[in-house]
Design a binder for these strands. Sequence first.
DNA 1: CGGCCGAAGTAGACACTGTCTACGAGGCCT
DNA 2: AGGCCTCGTAGACAGTGTCTACTTCGGCCG
Lengths: 193, 193
Amino acid sequence: MTESDISLRDRLVDVGVQLLAAEGLQALTLREIARRAGVSHGAPRRYFPTHLELLSAIARRGFADLAGRAHGALARETGGPRARVGALARTYLEFALDEPGMYELMFRHDLLESGHLGLRGTSLPLFGQLAGLVAEVRPEADARRVAGALWAGLHGIAQLWRWGSLQLAAGEEDFGPLLDTVLTAHLGPEAGR
Amino acid sequence: MTESDISLRDRLVDVGVQLLAAEGLQALTLREIARRAGVSHGAPRRYFPTHLELLSAIARRGFADLAGRAHGALARETGGPRARVGALARTYLEFALDEPGMYELMFRHDLLESGHLGLRGTSLPLFGQLAGLVAEVRPEADARRVAGALWAGLHGIAQLWRWGSLQLAAGEEDFGPLLDTVLTAHLGPEAGR
DNA sequence: CGGCCGAAGTAGACACTGTCTACGAGGCCT
DNA sequence: AGGCCTCGTAGACAGTGTCTACTTCGGCCG
């Protein structure tokens, strides 16, 4: 069987990721995941003692996905540091809007293990890259502080945009101009755009 | 009795607000609210057909509270538009960090009626005021766009700060410098600070 | 080869949730 | 007085996460 090739542990996470993308965070119950994996509701407990741990494992996939996309975007972007920050930021927002359920889960820290798996594992390195690029663009500024402000702006846009708040309040139709506004405010205008 | 002076409807919301502040969003179950209000678990249904509607009524208090604080802050701040934006922003962040449960609820739109009560009711006017002040500070820019970017920055700081992400990643101890960074980036330096 | 043992999954119980429905108590109006 | 109607009660129901006792089955050791 191809399904029993991989362990139940991995299959549960696979099913979870798929279910999250298909039906959203609310559908991601322990029992429904077990059902779709074809096992009883008690089975997951052997690998994930608590629901939070299973959700955390699913979220970890999301962090890995985001890190992969960011890595790919940076590899593709051959311009200067300012352009690379722009590519990173666009990737971040596209991820948040492409995978709304996953993005939601990744930042619902009440549903995740308190260990902040995502942050330490992949967000921090990613943040470090961002801060490094910022330092190149604005050597006179406190790069980590500016990178933090930038990240906050990205996260805010992602969140508010998903709810339609910014569309309604700011009257935008696309998040691009908002993103450019934030980037330009912190880093100055982008050369070739 | 002083408790039966006010209607059960209001009492439920009162109890909810109090419970939210005391024990957080997770404790805000319909049955627990009913218990603390001294009625059976079916009683709320007469006033709030669904749990979401009760939560929405509670959140509405939060939006009103925020609007009141903003109004007060603007009344207190006698400086120019740039200083007034600063006061507004600080008020927003202080609210988010003073009342973390309420702030969380206000932006958990999966728990609120889809009508976006809060947005239309109080956030939009508030956003309008912000945009008006921004227009005074930067007449050459698209005020609503800048205000949107500013709001996103505030929301992002509030969210990330509450989880400790920014403290960890950006190495800050206080959100003030981050807030100043965002404000300065979008509006230029504040005169008297 | 046979018995055992431990890992893996099952099945049912428990407390809790939100929702729904049938029911009773009490006041108000005609 | 009698009827109605608003308000709240009480219990049932499906669903959830967690916990515990029980089966099943494959591999290992004597």
